[in-house]
Design a protein around this nucleic acid. Structure first.
Lengths: 259, 259
DNA sequence: CTTGGTATG
DNA sequence: CATAACAAG
């Protein structure tokens, strides 16, 4: 079973640029997309999600902003949208979908960016704490739980091209990095890091400014966090740095499980 | 002597699309441009107006909106910007430049569009009356006066592709057409129409919607209006329908005088 | 349908 | 630097 997490930076632009080719070639069982930036009715009328997939799109109230989508080759059950229910005023921004695929649970997450305004950094930090508590009960399940998405935080110095220069930037602040460590202490497994080991610098996002992408000046901010039940089933995790870069400023993260 | 009037629909986009080639090939002595949609400091730093020309850009207060520019191969004197002076509250939209080239006077005009909102149609109509009075004194001069620009009005059924279907559209309303007739009654010469004669349907603007341009469903809304002293010197007037269409939704109008 | 501004990332 | 909404034409 293959699961892909990908911040597509606008599904409509991604469609124009040929995301369908990636749906075909990567052939995942479950795709969790972030930053779709569209209402369902805004998708092109002559376009469809991959044939036969179940689709759930959870948009932000604000048009053209944020929004997550989970699609699944096999039928899925939508357990919850929004981290505290659909009418949670704290999730009118389309940031969480919880879906159930057989016994496995997936939590698709797009954590707020704090890099623009102080209010947004404060919002991000409140959101981080709520979300950490929200996912915590899932950790204990004996069945696999897959949390993934764009968390807008690079954890260690291995997860960012220039740790010194970015030490005061939102997304690499000491308390944000500590929060990520706390998640791991809770018991979540950052399976990409566990898979490749320490010291490997592989990024999942590059700024559009300058030549960041060409120079591989990136950040790893897109993650798979697994509970122990799911971790046991990991076959491999990779970041498809080579591909998808003409589609989005983020690369797809691919998780293969032995089911 | 050659004078060109052209609504460029954003000089910055026009530069990207290669307006310089037209500056070179048409080689006019005076260019009067409308809808430049830029402040002087917003023009690309690695770009210049044609070598040796005097330039005056009169922008709107609102960024990226309206604005006219007159450039002249020979030195010119800027007589006035705005139909009632620079600080006229009714001309903060960059719509008029009066320039003097030797004994000849040029009045570069971008008349408001009324096609979006009723308030703008009311603004347009007030502006039309003020402008008609503003240019009137120039009519009597024994020296040549060249009024030109985008007047956002098609005069007769020869000046629009579908007169019946547009009879209730701003730009072809009966009282707008009457206002244009009044200008001619005042003594201004619509030298393009006089040159080609009645019954010839040649347009200067095509909507970007549908296939208006490909189907030649246009309007003639860009004019040269000359006083009798200037009219005597007309060698030819033409609308460069074939060219310039990849630059703007308007075609350049070319006036050749025997000087 | 296109320009350009703005918000957001 | 890119996506998308918007205002304006």
């Amino acid at each position: 079973m293959r699961i892909v997490s990908w911040n597509v930076n606008g599904i409509r632009a991604a469609i124009r640029k040929g995301i369908d080719g990636y749906f075909d070639s990567l052939d995942a069982d479950i795709w969790m997309l972030q930053e779709v930036r569209a209402l369902p009715e805004q998708l092109p009328k002559d376009w469809n999600w991959p044939e036969g997939y179940s689709v759930h799109l959870h948009p932000a109230e604000k048009k053209g902003y944020s929004g997550v989508t989970t699609i699944s080759k096999d039928p899925m059950e939508i357990v919850q949208v929004g981290k505290n229910g659909e009418h949670d005023p704290n999730d009118s921004e389309g940031r969480v979908i919880v879906s159930k695929h057989g016994e496995m649970i997936c939590i698709n997450t797009y954590l707020p960016s704090g890099s623009n305004k102080v209010e947004r950094q404060e919002f991000k930090e409140a959101w981080m704490e709520e979300w950490r508590q929200f996912i915590h009960p899932y950790l204990q399940l004996d069945t696999p739980v897959i949390v993934c998405g764009d968390l807008n935080i690079a954890h260690t110095e291995d997860d960012i091209w220039n740790p010194k220069g970015n030490a005061r930037q939102s997304g690499f602040l000491p308390h944000e990095r500590q929060w990520f460590s706390d998640l791991l202490d809770d018991g979540w497994h950052d399976v990409f890091r566990e898979h490749v080991g320490e010291g490997v610098k592989t990024y999942s996002w590059w700024s559009n400014r300058g030549q960041a992408r060409a120079k591989d000046r990136g950040w790893r901010i897109d993650y798979f966090l697994l509970n122990p039940a799911a971790k046991k089933a990991v076959k491999s995790v990779s970041i498809k740095r080579e591909g998808g870069l003409e589609i989005s400023d983020h690369a797809p993260v691919i998780l293969d499980l032995e089911y």
